[in-house]
Nucleic acid binder design. Structure first.
Length: 281
DNA sequence: ATGTCGCTTTGAAAGCGA
């Protein structure tokens, strides 16, 4: 049995835990990296996941952002944030700025390292959130390069909502995005730097076109006016295991969808689930 | 149409973030 790993910006896990868990089972997903859980750790609906056979590791902070990893093939060595991660927001009474909950890693299955990432939006080219976004991406790239230098053969994937559209064809109309975040050259350069650091987009070669996000407003989904901003960037060792991928466009349909859809990669490795499966032949 | 969501503060409606 292959291992199926997905990433999904769920836009509040409390608002759609049923829908997410239902999809996990329907799509036969082993590991899910979630973004925008929009809750504290104690508010995460872990019971719904556990009832379906998934362990959960969460990194929530308040009503904003928040990431998590759900797995039915084990979770180990959870890491919250990354070395050098910039902070943003209102200073606390003691003058320090708290770190946002936008990045976590876990080792799943037989030694596969998965990062769940929610890259800062940037808001506007003139907003302080924009240089924060660029610095955040640069520090993540540096931390990733350093980790890869020490573990060149580690299968690792950086997956999540990157909030960058690397190609003009990743948005429905470049004219609409003139002067906006997500398509600026510094953002695209920051994204491309991960490829220079040795990571590759393992979905694009298999699924060359298609969006992963459609705004709730202005009938964007019915008009197919979307953006491709959710990616899986993988090390060589991870990329060599990838045998398939999908963008789950149907998950944008129906009742109370997230504005993002899941992106799935399938790996040619033995699932730990196989070990305790009874032999029936 | 800055046209929809989800969360929070607050006790119905507004602010924030995306």
């Amino acid at each position: 049995m292959p291992v199926r790993i997905a990433t999904w910006n769920v836009n509040s896990i409390r608002a759609r835990s049923g829908r997410v868990v239902d999809w996990l089972q329907r799509a036969d997903i082993d590991v899910l990296a979630l973004q925008e859980i929009k809750c504290r750790d104690d508010q995460f609906p872990a019971a719904a996941f556990e009832a379906a056979g998934y362990e959960v590791a969460t990194h929530g902070f308040n009503q904003w952002n928040g990431v998590a990893v759900a797995s039915r093939v084990g979770i180990a060595d959870v890491e919250l944030g990354f070395p050098g991660m910039p902070a943003f927001g209102k200073p606390l009474p003691d003058g320090t700025v708290p770190l946002e909950a936008r990045a976590m890693a876990a080792t799943v299955g037989d030694g596969i390292r998965v990062w769940s990432l929610y890259v800062p939006n940037g808001r506007d080219l003139a907003d302080p959130h924009y240089p924060y976004k660029l610095a955040w991406l640069d520090r993540l790239r540096a931390a990733t390069a350093e980790r890869l230098a020490g573990n060149p053969d580690e299968p690792v994937a950086l997956m999540g909502d990157w909030n960058v559209a690397p190609l003009d064809s990743d948005v429905w109309d470049m004219a609409v995005f003139e002067g906006s975040t997500h398509v600026s050259q510094p953002e695209r350069d920051a994204f491309a730097a991960f490829e220079t650091a040795g990571l590759t987009d393992v979905v694009r070669p298999l699924i060359p076109t298609g969006y992963t996000y459609w705004d709730y407003k202005q009938l964007r989904f019915p008009r197919n006016e979307g953006m491709r901003i959710d990616f899986v960037l993988a090390s060589r060792a991870f990329a060599d295991l990838v045998t398939g991928a999908s963008i789950e466009r149907n998950e944008r349909k129906g009742d109370a969808p997230s504005d993002h859809v899941p992106v799935v990669v399938e790996l040619d490795v033995e699932s730990p689930l196989d070990d305790d499966r009874p032999m029936i032949f």
